[in-house]
Design a protein around this nucleic acid. Structure first.
Lengths: 334, 334
DNA sequence: AACGTTTAGCTAAACGTTTCGTCAATGGAA
DNA sequence: TTCCATTGACGAAACGTTTAGCTAAACGTT
């Protein structure tokens, strides 16, 4: 690999001049600039970001840690962050914790070790562990996204999960349903709890007593949700509608519905949190609550950039609003 | 940030001893080792991967470039590569070309600039551009995945795309269909051409003349495919089955089918290349051809590791076999 | 006792940049 | 002419590691 030294030698200038030419900052005469550029071209020189990073103490890398990249919500989040980061001249260092406890701490350490300018993380961790993560990050700016507890002393971007659940449940209830069930997320996650509160609040507002049998815990993944869906369907007092707390569990519930040979929304109405590309391809197209993923990525990156520019105000919590996308998977009870 | 120097001072040893302790290679007496470890702990020291990379010339980073991360095939590929890379002690530097022409070259340059130990790329580029990519990579090992032309002089991991298309088409034909259409991919892509050949070969083997009207070009994305699907459905001589060349276009075609109010497989049979988590959640569950994503990631990483270990044999081409997953979206013609 | 050998640890030189301070040359003001 | 600013380029010192080469002590062998 050619280095600046080689370029300098070929162009008969000093290393400093090559550096100046590349960074464009300092004055370099047009004649020299041309010689340098020609030499760079001839040698196929590419700057060594590692050396540059070592010297300057910055790295044009930003860490991104998500619990499950196969979940379309996170896929789109990664996509959005990647695109916006690239536009700002940063490259994404991807970490996937796969819901594994210690993995998040390790990944933060990794990002730090690679001198990432900052890290955006969507923690799967419990409330207390989030505090540890912030500690591990040290002086590397950390932005928490999605499942961030309010107690976290780091910049935070979340949606109003309670409202998201209410939006979906209100929509279901507007058709006159009284027997409404939910497949909820793992209780140690902040977002799960919020979504469950929202569901229950909506029922209460409509004067409906929530039945314990109608509240099933999933784990935000397919298999458990499918089981939960089947159980609900086989209840003697089968619910006429189900609110599902995320997209992966919606797959599971839809599988259960398909297996049971039920028709949506004739036999049962379905609504879920998380919109995704396949939702309109179903028959009937699925009604969901969309999270403003692009805006979330924007906000997270803005926080990060502002910290990089020396902003040292106390951590802020940015709250974004979800949006109901009405399609055709909800209708009147049978 | 604490450095080795700080640790060394606190533990009253030399920097070299700290380094030796960390790398575990050389002999360090238990007493010193303990002192060093204690100092590390006290200072919250984390090794600077950048400095280490600069000195050692290696970086524990591997590049991964995909054209479209929201496509579940690539999502799962990223997931698999990420997992296996992490297990081998590497971190993934993610690049997304978004099907943009020059982006791939830029991303390869970026990976090189970050001293990635190697890069795995699934090129969207044309055949000739792939040659350029290899050139840009220089001495950084490059492995091409999925859409790699046979002419590429780099290690290559592909599936038998012709066979994949034949598997799906043969399955359709086994129900007695004679009017079979396809929504195919962009013609500049090697995989599109192969899949189209496979489709046509299958028809020929069954003595069916392929109708030009029944062959539609998509672009591997949703919108175009939806349009193509609608056109096919509205043909005076509507096909009784459609073979779709990838998963994103399957979304589009399913949307078209839903819009037209057709029932699958009663009115029309559907089969596609690329399995994905949602396929079994449809009613009816969708029949697809599964690519061995895990094996592909394995093979790509193995190639890379072998190159890192100094293997300088000529580039090899690894061919993996796809697998038909029969569900319920194909049936006899109406 | 003199000599190698082994062990444990240290010193110092890289790695490829950025950047600060220096310096020569030029030119305008006194 | 002398002096000082300005401009354009350079030299050299970092940045935080790794590692080759070295020293010194401890030990076993003759």
């Amino acid at each position: 690999m050619a280095t600046m030294k080689d370029v300098a030698r070929l162009a008969s200038v000093s290393i400093a001049t090559v550096s100046a030419t590349l960074s464009g900052a300092s004055f370099v005469s047009p004649a020299l600039k041309e010689r340098v550029l020609a030499a760079i071209d001839e040698l196929g020189y590419a700057p060594n970001a590692i050396a540059s990073g070592l010297k300057s103490g910055k790295s044009s890398l930003i860490g991104l840690v998500v619990p499950d990249i196969t979940n379309p919500f996170f896929t789109e989040l990664v996509h959005a962050v990647q695109r916006k980061a690239a536009a700002a001249g940063f490259t994404v260092l991807l970490g996937v914790s796969d819901d594994h406890a210690g993995a998040e701490a390790d990944l933060i350490r990794l990002m730090r070790s690679h001198q990432a300018s900052g890290t955006i993380i969507s923690p799967g961790s419990s409330e207390e562990d989030c505090g540890k993560l912030i500690e591990i990050a040290g002086k590397m700016p950390l932005v928490m996204l999605d499942n961030a507890p309010p107690s976290a002393r780091a910049d935070t971007v979340v949606i109003d999960n309670r409202k998201a659940a209410q939006l979906a449940t209100d929509h279901i209830l507007s058709f006159g349903h009284r027997r409404v069930a939910t497949v909820s997320g793992p209780s140690h996650r902040f977002v799960s709890r919020e979504r469950l509160y929202g569901f229950e609040a909506s029922l209460e507002n409509h004067g409906i007593e929530p039945l314990p049998d109608y509240v099933r815990r999933g784990d935000f993944h397919v298999a458990e949700a499918c089981k939960a869906g089947l159980e609900l369907i086989n209840l003697p007092d089968r619910p006429t509608a189900i609110f599902v707390a995320n997209n992966q569990m919606l797959i599971g519930v839809m599988q259960a519905v398909a297996q049971a040979g039920l028709s949506v929304p004739r036999d049962i109405s379905i609504a879920a949190i998380d919109d995704f590309p396949w939702a309109p391809a179903f028959s009937p197209a699925l009604t969901t609550v969309r999270q403003p993923i692009d805006a979330m990525a924007d906000a997270a990156l803005s926080c990060l950039m502002s910290r990089l520019n020396g902003n040292s105000e106390p951590a802020q919590r940015i709250l974004l609003q979800p949006e109901l996308v009405v399609r055709r998977s909800c209708g009147p009870p049978p």
